[in-house]
C-alpha cells in the first residue's frame, strides 16, 4: 500500500495474530500512574521498562514485598501476553512508558470495554493492540480467564476477531489506517514525510496565520 513511502527502518513490531494466555485486572479506571509510577519516567526507551509495570500496585505497601494475590504476580498467569481490564483502562497521563512497560513485560494486546484515548493511540503506534469489546463480553472473558488460568485467547487483527477460551468469537473495530500500520509494523513518520508536497502546499496557503 505504501511502497516507497518509508524512509529509515520501521520502528514498530508488527501485530497480526496472537494466541496466548490472558490475565485479568477486573477493575475500572486503572490509570497510567498505576501502570507505571511517575518516578520511573526519566528512563530512556532503551531501558527495559517491564520491571516498572504496576510497580507499586503489585506490592504490599507495608513491606514492599510482591503481593502474591495480585494477578500479574500469580505464576499461573506468567505466560500471559494479553491483559483484560475494566472500563476506562489506562486513563490519565499521556506517558507512553505505560505502553512500554506492558510491552517490555511481554504484553501485545489489552482488552477492555473502553480505554483512555491517548493510551489507545500510543498502543497502536507501539505494537500493543488495544481491543474494545462490549462490557458483557469483557466480563465473560474475565470469568473464563479466572476460571481456567492459562486458557488461550486468540486475537486476530487481520480478521478483527477475538476468540475466547470457550470458543466464542467476538468482532472488534480498529481504525483502518492504524490497523494497516500495525499489521505491517510501520510507523507513520515515513509516510507523512512522503507527503511533503501536500504539507508545503498547506503552509503556503496558510501563510503566516497563527505564527504571531
Amino acid at each position: 500500500m505504501c511502497d516507497g513511502c518509508w524512509r529509515g527502518a520501521a520502528e514498530m513490531e508488527a501485530f497480526t495474530r496472537l494466541t496466548s494466555a490472558a490475565v485479568a485486572l477486573p477493575r475500572p479506571n486503572i490509570d497510567t500512574d498505576q501502570i507505571i509510577p511517575a518516578r520511573f519516567l526519566s528512563r530512556p526507551r532503551e531501558v527495559d521498562h517491564g520491571e516498572f509495570l504496576f510497580h507499586d500496585a503489585r506490592r504490599v505497601p507495608a513491606t514492599g514485598e510482591q503481593d502474591p494475590d495480585f494477578p500479574l504476580n500469580r505464576e499461573e498467569f506468567g505466560a500471559a501476553r494479553i491483559i483484560v481490564a475494566g472500563r476506562n483502562f489506562a486513563c490519565g497521563s499521556s506517558r507512553e512508558s505505560a505502553v512500554w512497560a506492558l510491552f517490555d513485560a511481554g504484553f501485545r494486546c489489552a482488552i477492555a470495554p473502553s480505554f483512555g484515548d491517548i493510551f489507545r493511540t500510543n498502543g497502536m503506534k507501539n505494537g500493543l493492540l488495544p481491543v474494545v469489546l462490549p462490557a458483557e463480553a469483557v466480563a465473560a472473558l474475565i470469568g473464563q480467564v479466572e476460571a481456567a488460568p492459562g486458557a488461550e485467547v486468540t486475537v486476530d487483527l487481520q480478521a478483527l476477531e477475538v476468540t475466547f477460551p470457550d470458543g466464542s468469537v467476538h468482532g472488534f473495530e480498529v481504525d483502518p489506517f492504524a490497523r494497516h500500520c500495525l499489521l505491517e509494523g510501520l510507523d507513520e513518520i515515513g509516510l507523512t514525510l512522503s507527503l511533503e508536497d501536500e504539507i508545503a502546499a498547506f503552509e503556503r496557503r496558510y501563510g503566516r496565520e497563527n505564527t504571531r
Partner: peptide, 19 residues
C-alpha cells in the same frame, strides 16, 4: 495531549494524523 511517538511525528512534520 499526545504520546511521545506523536511528539516525534509533530517535531518531524509539524502535522498529526487524527480521526
Amino acid at each position: 495531549g499526545i504520546g511521545s511517538t506523536e511528539v516525534a511525528h509533530v517535531l518531524a512534520t509539524q502535522t498529526l494524523w487524527q480521526r
